[in-house]
Amino acid sequence: MDSQRTSSSQRGAVRAPASQPGGAKLAQIAREAGVSLSTASKVLNNRPGVSDATRKRIEQLLEKNGYRRRRRTEQTTTDIVELLLDDLDTPWSEEILSGVLAGLRKPYVPVVSARTGDNWSIGVWLEEVLARRSAGVIIPLFEFPKEAEERLARSGIPAVLVDPTGDVPQNVPTVGSNDYAGVREATEYLIAQGHTRIAFIGGPTYLQTAAARLDGFRGAMRQAGLTVDPALVSSGEFRYDDGKKHACELLSMPNPPTAIFAAGDMQAAGVYAAAWERGLRIPDDLSVVGFDDLPTSRLLLPPLTTVHHAVREMAQFGAATLMQILEGSAGGMPTHLELTTSLVIRESVRKLP
């Protein structure tokens, strides 16, 4: 994930529209009306997607507090829904896009952006969203900065977070999953198969999702009375090359693990490659478990035992939630939905004698 450069931040600085006395005051009006900041901003900017009764209540509060609302002729909303991805060429991104397409309804169409390139920043991307006059945004696997949340809300553009990686904003709907429970269940399965020397290849330490998966692994080991060897725990990116690199290091140890838990299926594919290069057979010589249940996990030889993360379902629910907001059928306050995970047992784990 690219860091935000000073020049880009300046270009994407947050500016309140002239028609508003201030974002903080609008948030107070939203609380008084019992709605989200995004809903209050929709009424302020004469955007659709708000019931008549709610719109009337907010309009009265806006008038009371001296807000000047846009005229109906000033509406500038298009039917574009923004989808912001970390990458465009991964199976995970393909699952997200498929889910979003399944959840959107006509006339809305997605515009896909990727967080790539040295010049990318959240501020510059927001400028592009506003220039395209987008109806709403869907943001998967990204920590949503407060300034971005406030800016979209002031512009009346609703956002939905899918599989959020940081603290969940109270004013933004989210769709996630229980990463902790999923990893814990899979680790318990490995232990039940007789494995005690288990390695864990995790994700970026700054992501809450990665921290939850590591906590699930440690929790299962601790519950079984097993010690987690720090030498068997590593962190990196949820990518093939990263999984292969860490697996090479683990398999080169004098006392290598009998099983490796990769916190992402693409990392697990990298583990397969590292094992193959050393002439090791899965699961005879090494057991492997992944996380996500991407379509590629079924194509590995042998097929990968993994945690079903419901990536496509989360994206579909996220898009459907945005549809409810845009069509005015959502409730006043944002929802925070958490999907359950499940262990998918295939052929990559061996039961030790």
Rank of each mutant, 00 (worst) to 15 (best):
P91L: 14
P91E: 13
W92V: 11
W92F: 15
S93W: 07
E95G: 09
I96A: 01
I96L: 04
S98R: 15
S98K: 13
S98Y: 04
G99R: 00
G99V: 01
L101D: 09
L101S: 09
A102I: 11
A102L: 14
A102K: 15
G103Y: 05
G103V: 01
L104I: 08
L104P: 01
R105C: 07
R105P: 03
K106Y: 10
K106R: 12
P107H: 09
Y108N: 02
Y108K: 02
V109A: 09
P110Q: 03
V112W: 10
S113T: 15
S113Q: 12
S113I: 07
R115M: 15
R115T: 12
G117Y: 09
G117E: 06
D118A: 15
N119E: 15
N119H: 14
N119Y: 14
S121Y: 01
S121P: 03
S121V: 02
S121N: 08
I122W: 08
I122T: 07
I122K: 06
V124I: 14
W125L: 08
W125Q: 04
W125T: 05
E127N: 14
E127M: 08
E128H: 13
V129F: 05
V129G: 00
V129T: 09
V129N: 02
L130K: 14
L130H: 09
L130S: 06
A131S: 13
R132L: 10
R133V: 05
R133C: 11
R133W: 06
A135M: 01
G136N: 03
G136S: 04
I138R: 00
I139R: 01
P140E: 00
P140H: 04
L141T: 10
F142L: 08
F142Y: 09
F142E: 07
E143R: 13
F144N: 00
F144Y: 14
P145T: 07
P145L: 12
P145C: 02
K146R: 14
E147F: 12
A148I: 10
A148S: 13
E149L: 10
E149D: 11
E149K: 13
E150N: 12
E150G: 06
E150T: 15
R151V: 06
R151T: 04
L152Q: 03
A153V: 05
A153T: 11
R154A: 12
R154C: 08
R154S: 10
R154K: 08
S155I: 08
G156K: 02
I157T: 03
I157P: 00
P158M: 03
P158C: 11
